[in-house]
Design a protein around this nucleic acid. Structure first.
Lengths: 192, 192
DNA sequence: ACCTGAACACCGTTCAAGT
DNA sequence: ACCTGAACACCGTTCAAGT
């Protein structure tokens, strides 16, 4: 049976969901696919490229988001979809964060494009739209990496009753930071 | 000669500056210190803890920053000092970013405290000050990781004449995103 | 208290050779 | 075209034993 990129990404995502990013190694993946580690290097140049493909698999659901009537709604919709996608896979935020930094995620670039267009509608100078879009993405990635590590830590047998007491409300906090950014964008448009 | 934590962090920082984070391994570090890898585990529980100590060494210069008269100045001063510190060491942004996410940097927490106090002065509700501070730190870390990877990439023999032409002005972009956040904080204070 | 020796259980990547 | 076999050059961590 021939090995296709799709099968590799499928298996990689399965390992990620079941055991986390630390166990997502080329050797482990090859074993799961009943293949030699070297075989993976026929399909992917290196591990970074493979992780980029997994990142795009994780981000696939965000493609359904379209620009809304008003730019603040677009930003909120994109960011919420992004966060949801990351939280849907074990260590999803960490993996996508790394792939984004390495410039290996196609879909991450598409998201920057959408947000950049929203910044433009907000009245941000064209030269600054990309910077504005990236600022928003830095926030969502940073926030969700933190959130997911906390969630996974106390989901790993830590607390149970204190959970409802001590638990910071992630949704509320996420919305707060997002509003900060949207307000900042709004302030900028009035200035220019 | 006895091995002290200070010596270990000194040597680790030297490897980082000269060869980058990929070469900062426990074995390499032990070799440089003329010691067995196991010796490091008498002084540090694991690699994460050691990297946290290196992160704090990198962030040490930011301790000189004090709260200013007006909260926007405090935020700008803290963020500028943070970015400068990260850019002063090869892969500094990446290392501190990882240590911050792992909760291994003492000084990173102090920075959150300073920014949180500034958010309070801005009129942010007490329950939201920590979230506001973290949003700012996510931005600085995300931005500087990007900036440093670009800088190091085309410092590694890529461009020279195009440098002045294509080069995005990092300082200007950094200031833009920072202003976005400060404006957002300002908008919030007026609302409450 | 502090460190060595030696092992355990792995890594990512390359590349001649096979089919 | 696609994959195997086998190697290269490493990792982080543990822990009995030494001084």
């Amino acid at each position: 049976m021939q090995l296709h990129k799709r099968d590799v990404v499928d298996a990689a995502t399965a390992i990620l969901d079941a055991y986390g990013i630390a166990d997502l190694t080329m050797r482990r993946l090859a074993r799961e696919l009943a293949v030699t580690p070297g075989a993976l290097y026929w399909h992917f140049a290196n591990k970074q490229e493979l992780l980029g493909a997994v990142a795009d698999r994780i981000l696939e659901p965000t493609r359904a988001v379209e620009a809304a009537e008003h730019w603040p709604d677009t930003i909120v919709a994109v960011c919420s979809a992004l966060r949801d996608a990351l939280l849907s896979h074990t260590d999803g935020a960490e993996l996508v964060s790394a792939s984004f930094a390495a410039g290996q995620s196609q879909i991450a670039s598409e998201i920057i494009g959408l947000l950049s267009a929203a910044a433009d509608e907000a009245g941000v100078a064209v030269d600054d739209c990309d910077a504005a879009a990236r600022t928003v993405v830095y926030y969502v990635l940073g926030f969700t990496v933190d959130e997911q590590s906390k969630r996974q830590w106390d989901s790993a047998g830590a607390l149970a009753e204190e959970h409802s007491v001590l638990a910071v409300d992630h949704d509320r906090r996420f919305a707060f930071g997002l509003r900060l950014l949207v307000d900042g964008l709004g302030a900028h448009s009035r200035v220019s």
